[in-house]
Design a protein around this nucleic acid. Structure first.
Length: 449
RNA sequence: GGCGCCAUAGCCAAGUGGUAAGGCACGGGACUGCAACUCCCUUAUCAUCGGUUCGAAUCCGAUUGGCGCCUCCA
């Protein structure tokens, strides 16, 4: 298996630190508002990464944080005249609900910054003691200059970064690239610390929570490309300073989601909340849309591409439904089979092993669908054909489930089988009125024939 | 100013040196009592120019256009 590593800018063979075990961490949202559809991309993609690892027999420990301390949360609390906790809990709940609606597997752990304040303080103290941090008037900064290789993830040279960096006039930083570890505050939520009252900066939380939940060096750290600099760069700097590790062996970054070829932003007024999209489209459609493009490419959200995905999902549903109903009708659905359609599995694995090429993986699923559709059209089936159909059915279903796409298809009971028989008989007798009546009854049960 | 990405049919999209996967939509046809579903057929030389090569969408250079990051951001 090969994974593109942002740290080296190369596809690298994936070798877990511990055989068959994977520790992965994906940066989660800051819960100051409902998440937008851009947030859904890493959520869906890394869920598929996890599902694929599980399918390949790995044990996966999947952690994603909830950032519940942040300026934006504090502002939202002030504006609405409620506590930060209230804001954070409301939007965290909404976020987790959306994640569930997207049919993502539940996270193993969702660490919260507010639960890690003592650890964060300890971590900053250790950095200070080791000479990588300095205090100025109650603020604590990380000294970027004291770390070698700063900029290796984002491929930035320190001197060039300074040109574009915004240097505030009264900056207390020794180096404009230095970032805040602890921020002295007078307003909003705050904690006591050796440096006085304040709250932690953004970049430390992830390192501390990763160290605590997963360890000092994990297999995969994921997030959007926009987090590469400065967030992930600063995580690495802290980890190198204290733990002498680059925190994660493989750094994976998904491309941005665009709306009509424009960046999604509040100022452009083109943000779309995930919750609103979920009202418009089934989760299968959203997932297929998100997975139809390779994860490192930018993905453009348009009404047209959503409709496109919707049509595809309808075809998948109808194909799988026909397949299952046929097998069920012939009392063959629950039969045990040995093995699946190996050639499709191999092709699927090959696509996914190549840096999670979901676009190609979807093509393989389409191929299965095609073969099944052709075979299932027959009027009657031999034992061999039924077995083939059953294999195709299970393979189809399995591969879809790795993409997190599942369909609930009704099971037939004897009564329904009877109805189907009666309808067939009516049609043979050209009694189309009865046939159509039965069809309507079946339709109501969710059975389209 | 620095770093980086992208440009393939109406649309989405794979392919990264050996002669353009797949899907959606459109059109034509088949099946059907009608319909839905399904099936078959049809659709591009890969932004432009130049170079390397027996051979390039794929490598190199230039140009044009679009985008991201460097400040909170998935």
């Amino acid at each position: 298996m090969y994974i593109y590593n942002s740290l080296t800018n190369k596809k690298e063979e994936f070798i877990p630190i511990e055989p068959n075990k994977i520790k992965m961490y994906v940066c989660g949202p800051t819960v100051y508002n409902y998440v937008h559809i851009g947030n859904a991309r890493p959520v869906i993609f890394f869920d598929v990464v996890r599902r694929y690892f599980l399918y390949r027999g790995y044990e996966v420990n999947f952690v994603s944080n909830i950032t519940d301390v942040d300026d934006k949360i504090i502002n939202a609390a002030l504006v609405n005249n409620v506590s930060e906790t209230e804001i954070a809990q409301k939007y965290e709940q909404a976020f987790l609900e959306n994640v569930k609606q997207l049919n993502c597997l539940p996270y193993d752990v969702n660490p919260h910054v507010t639960d890690y304040i003592p650890n964060i303080i300890k971590f900053i103290e250790a950095l200070e003691k080791a000479g990588y941090a300095y205090e100025v008037d109650g603020d604590v900064y990380f000294s970027v200059g004291d770390v070698t290789d700063y900029g290796q993830l984002s491929n930035q040279e320190t001197e060039h970064l300074e040109v574009g960096a915004r240097i505030t006039e009264h900056s207390k930083k020794r180096n404009p690239l230095d970032f805040t570890l602890w921020k002295k505050t007078d307003v909003g939520i705050q904690w006591d610390s050796p440096w006085g009252k304040g709250r932690p900066g953004w970049h430390t939380e992830c390192v501390v929570m990763i160290n605590d939940t997963l360890g000092k060096l994990i297999d995969i750290h994921g997030g959007g490309t926009d987090l590469i600099f400065p967030h992930h760069e600063n995580e690495i700097a802290q980890s190198m300073a204290l733990n002498k590790t680059c925190l994660a062996k493989y750094w994976m970054h998904n491309g941005r989601l665009m709306i009509d070829n424009e960046k999604m932003s509040k100022s452009l007024g083109n943000s779309v909340f995930l919750k609103d999209l979920l009202e418009k489209y089934e989760y299968q459609v959203i997932r297929l849309f998100m997975l139809s493009t390779h994860y490192r490419q930018p993905l453009n959200y348009t009404v047209e591409s959503m409709e496109n995905a919707k049509n595809e999902v309808e075809k998948m549903r109808s194909s799988l439904t026909t397949l299952q109903l046929k097998l069920d009708y012939y009392q063959y659905l629950d039969k045990e089979i040995q093995g699946l359609e190996e050639s499709y599995l191999e092709a699927f694995n090959e696509a996914m092993d190549d840096d999670f090429n979901t676009a190609n993986a979807i093509t393989i699923i389409m191929n299965i669908m095609k073969e099944a559709n052709i075979l299932v059209r027959k009027q009657s089936f031999t034992e061999v054909e039924l077995e083939k159909l059953l294999k195709l059915y299970h393979t189809f279903k399995l591969l879809l489930s790795i993409l997190g796409i599942e369909f609930n298809i009704i099971r037939l009971d004897d009564e329904t089988r009877d109805l189907i028989n009666k309808r067939n008989e009516a049609r043979r007798n050209k009694d189309f009125e009865t046939a159509d009546q039965i069809r309507a009854i079946l339709q109501e049960k969710g059975i389209t024939i």
